[in-house]
């Protein structure tokens, strides 16, 4: 695990540093700018989908999906980040305690 932690950290710093260091012409192109704006949306959406309803056995709608449903409600109510995450965890935990998912 340590090599992955350190390589990810090094890449994160080098990306930030490159912005401060490199001449603008290298990074400041429309394609680079647009990709950097779109990538977080696409990656976060893909991560949400896979981690909500994919398990080693295939497509699954279980307590996790119910928890994320609770998170959607919290987001619609403009709850802060910690409340969103806690409502998902609590919903999933309660459903499991009741023997579902």
């Amino acid at each position: 695990m340590w090599p992955a932690v350190l390589v990810a950290s090094a890449l994160a710093f080098l990306t930030k540093w490159a912005g401060h260091l490199l001449p603008e012409a290298v990074l400041d192109r429309p394609l680079v700018r647009r990709s950097a704006a779109l990538l977080p949306i696409a990656l976060l959406a893909a991560l949400t989908a896979v981690q909500t309803c994919w398990s080693p056995t295939g497509f699954t709608l279980d307590a996790r999906a119910a928890g994320v449903g609770a998170a959607v409600v919290a987001l619609l109510l403009r709850a802060p980040f910690l409340v969103v995450v806690l409502s998902a965890a609590a919903t999933a935990a309660i459903l499991r305690a009741l023997g579902w998912g």
Binding site: T48, Q51, L75, A89, T91, A93
Partner: peptide
């Protein structure tokens, strides 16, 4: 059991 596996996608969704 504590539902932390549901917290992960909820965290991504809150960032999205």
């Amino acid at each position: 059991v504590l539902g932390l596996d549901a917290a992960i996608p909820a965290g991504f969704l809150a960032l999205l």
